[in-house]
Design a protein around this nucleic acid. Sequence first.
DNA 1: ATTCTGACAGCAA
DNA 2: TTTGCTGCCAGAA
Length: 116
Amino acid sequence: MPTRGLKENNDFFSKVYEVTKRIPYGRITSYGAIARYLGSGRSARMVGWALNVSHSNRGFIPAHRVVNRNGLLSGKFHFGNSTTMEQLLENEGIIIENDRIINFEEKFWDPETELK
DNA sequence: ATTCTGACAGCAA
DNA sequence: TTTGCTGCCAGAA
């Protein structure tokens, strides 16, 4: 059941959270990868928005494991301190240098192929 | 109602 | 390689 459009957003947001929760410890993915998996590859920005308001959601949502397609920690300012996201990732074995994940491809987790 | 702004991504210069 | 524009679509002003 491919959700082509984003007509029903509540549903879209929930799906973003579900996928994000399934990102394995020590692995990372991108906004675009999640958007594509959900059938709306051009709505990566909505994935970012969903994670932005994910704090209102119950449970643990590892939003720090989602970065942009270049491995850049584009959302680091949305965590308490500007270094929180970086620390969380480094604790999981992700190597970061200048807000950019060095071992991006090695740790990349694509829901399209891994969660299918 | 209209405009602006994004935790993005892809493509043209 | 870097910069800028465009599509996307939900909120805020």
